[in-house]
Design a protein around this nucleic acid. Sequence first.
DNA 1: GGGTAATATGTTACGGGTAACGGAAACTCC
DNA 2: GGAGTTTCCGTTACCCGTAACATATTACCC
Lengths: 335, 335
Amino acid sequence: MTTKKKRPTLQDVADRVGITKMTVSRYLKKPEQVSVALHEKIQSALDELGYIPNKVPDMLSSAKSHAIGVLVPSLTNQVFSEVIRGFESVTEPAGYQTMLAHYGYSQSAEEARIATLLGYNVDGLILSESVHTERVRRMIKTAGVPVIELMDSVSPAIEQAIGFDNSAAALAMTELMISRGHHHIVYFAARMDARTRLKIKGYEQAMHKHHLEPFSLQTEEASSFTRGALLLRQALQQRPSLDGIFCTNDDLAIGAFYECQRQGIPVPEQIGIAGFHGHDISGAMVPRLATVVTPREEMGRLAAENLLARLQGSPIARQIIDLPFRLEAGESLRR
Amino acid sequence: MTTKKKRPTLQDVADRVGITKMTVSRYLKKPEQVSVALHEKIQSALDELGYIPNKVPDMLSSAKSHAIGVLVPSLTNQVFSEVIRGFESVTEPAGYQTMLAHYGYSQSAEEARIATLLGYNVDGLILSESVHTERVRRMIKTAGVPVIELMDSVSPAIEQAIGFDNSAAALAMTELMISRGHHHIVYFAARMDARTRLKIKGYEQAMHKHHLEPFSLQTEEASSFTRGALLLRQALQQRPSLDGIFCTNDDLAIGAFYECQRQGIPVPEQIGIAGFHGHDISGAMVPRLATVVTPREEMGRLAAENLLARLQGSPIARQIIDLPFRLEAGESLRR
DNA sequence: GGGTAATATGTTACGGGTAACGGAAACTCC
DNA sequence: GGAGTTTCCGTTACCCGTAACATATTACCC
C-alpha cells in the first residue's frame, strides 16, 4: 500500500455504487428523494469507505458554516465556562458548532481573534465585552454577521446585549455590607476591564452615599485564590483598620478569607467578606460566602436563543436584555 | 442602500485597483513579490473595503485549515482549562486556531464531535481519553490527521499519548495516607471514565497490599464542591468508621472537607482528606490540601509541540510520553 | 394509448483563494 | 545590441458539496 490515504469524497462513494455524487448527497440530506433500492447500496459504500461529511465546500458556496464564534477573555475564569455551558446547551442540539477563542483581556488580541473567526466564516459572534476598538466594529459590520455582547446590560450595544447591571449589583452588595456594620470596605480587583470599572463605580457610589471613603486594590494578574490572599496582606498594610472586603470575583474573596484564617482574623466579626458571581463553592464553604449571584448560564442560553432566531431571519427582539442578579448574604458578613 | 452588504472578496479589492486578485493575494502572502508601486494602492483598497481574509477557499483546495480540534470531556472541569491554556500557549503564536468541543464523558458524543471537527477539516486532533469506539479509530484513520491522546501514559495509544500514570499516582497517595495512619479510606469518584477506573485500581492495589478493604463511592453528576459534601454524608452513613477520604478531584475533596467542618469533624485528626490535581485552591486553603499534583499545562504544551512538529512532517518522536506527578502532603493528613 | 403528473437521477455551475505555469517587460553584461 | 536573467503580473485550474435546472423513467387516468 504505497498509495497515500486520502479522505474519501462523495465522488468516491458514488463511483463505487455506479451513480453520481449528487444522488449520494441527496441520500445524506433528503433520503426520501432517493429510491429505496439504492439506500442499501449507498449506505454500504459509505460504510466501507468510511466517508466523513465535509462541510467546507458548502461553507464556500453558501458562505454559511453552521459554526458560531464565541469570544471570552479567559477560559480559566469559571464565569465564562458556565456562560459557555449555557450557550452550548442550546446551540448543540440545533446543530451548531461553537468556535471558542480567548483574548486575555487585551483589545488588540480580541481584534485578531475576531478576524480569525470571521476567516472561518462563522455565522455569528458572541462577545464578552462591551467596549471594542473601531476596527472591531468595522469588521463586524462588513462581515455582516449577527453579534451579541454579554455580561453588561448598561453600555450601548453594537447590535444586541444580554447581561446585568454591574454597577447596580456592586452598589447593592456594598450597601448590604454597610448595613451589616462593615464601613471600612476595600475593593479587590484583578485584571481591569470595562466591567470591573462598572463594579467599582457602583461600589464607590455606595460608599460616597454613606460618606465613607472608597479604596480599591488591583493586580494585573488573573484573579485566583492565591491572588486574593496576597491582596489581603497588601490591604492590611495599607489600611490596617479595614473591616470589609468586597471582591470582583468569588475566588479572590475566598483567597482573602483563607488569609484571614491563617492570620487568625475572625470572619465576619473583624472583617466581612463578599464575592461576586455565586459559584458552587460559595454556597458550600464554611462560612458560606456573601456574594452577588449572577445569571451566568442564563446569559449563555439567551444569547444562543437570540442568535439562532436571528440566523433564521427574525429581527432583533430586544436590543438590551437586562437580567436580574441576586444578593446572597451567606455567613461571611456580620448579622 | 438597498444592496445587501456582502463581505468583500479579493476580487473586489483587485477590481478597485485595476489588477487581478492573484496580485492582491500575493501582496498579502508574499509582498516582496509585488512591486512597491502597487503596495500603497492595494493597501488602501483593502482598508477602504475592509477586507477580511477568508480561509475557507484554501481549506477546500489544500485540505488544510490551520485549525486543530481539541476534545475535552468537560469545560467546567478546571483540569481541562489548564490543559487548554498550555496547549494554546504554543499553537496560538504558531498561527493555529483551536476548535474546542466537549462531549460530557459520553463515547457516542465523542464520536459525533470528532465527526464534526473533521467536517471542518481540522489539521490535527487532541483527545482527552484513551478509550475510544471502533468507529472513532476508523474515522481518524481514514481522515488521516495526526492524533494525540492526553491524560494517560499507560493505555496503548492510537498514535501518540502524553500523560501520567494515573494508577501509580493514586497508589502513591493512598500509601501516603496509610503511612500517616489513615486506614479506613474511602474513594470518592464522580462521573466514571477510564482514567477514574485507573485511579481506583491504584487505590485498591495500595489498600490490598496493606490488607485494608477498599470502598468507593461514585456519583453520576459532574464533580463539584457541593457533590463532595453530599458524598461525605453518604460515606459516613455507609462506613461510619472511616478515617480517610481520597477524591478523584480537588473539588470533591474540598467539598468533603467543608462538610466535615459543618459536622464538627476534625480534619485531619479524625478524617484525613486528599484530592487530585493540585489546583491553585489546594495550596491556598486552610488546611492546605493533600493532593496529587499533575502536569496539566505541560501536557497541553507538549501535545501542541508534538502535534505541530508532526504537521511539519516530523515522525512521531516518542509514542508515549510519561510525565511525572508529585505528591503534596499539605495539612489535611495526620502527621 | 395518449397525455399529464409524479418520481428518480443526472448535468451544470458556483463559491474564493492559491499553486503552478506562462509571458511580457526591464535589466544585465560583454 | 542581442542573449540571458530577473522581476512582475496574469491565466488557468483546482478543491468538493449542493442548488437549480434538465432529463429520464414510471405511474396513473379516462
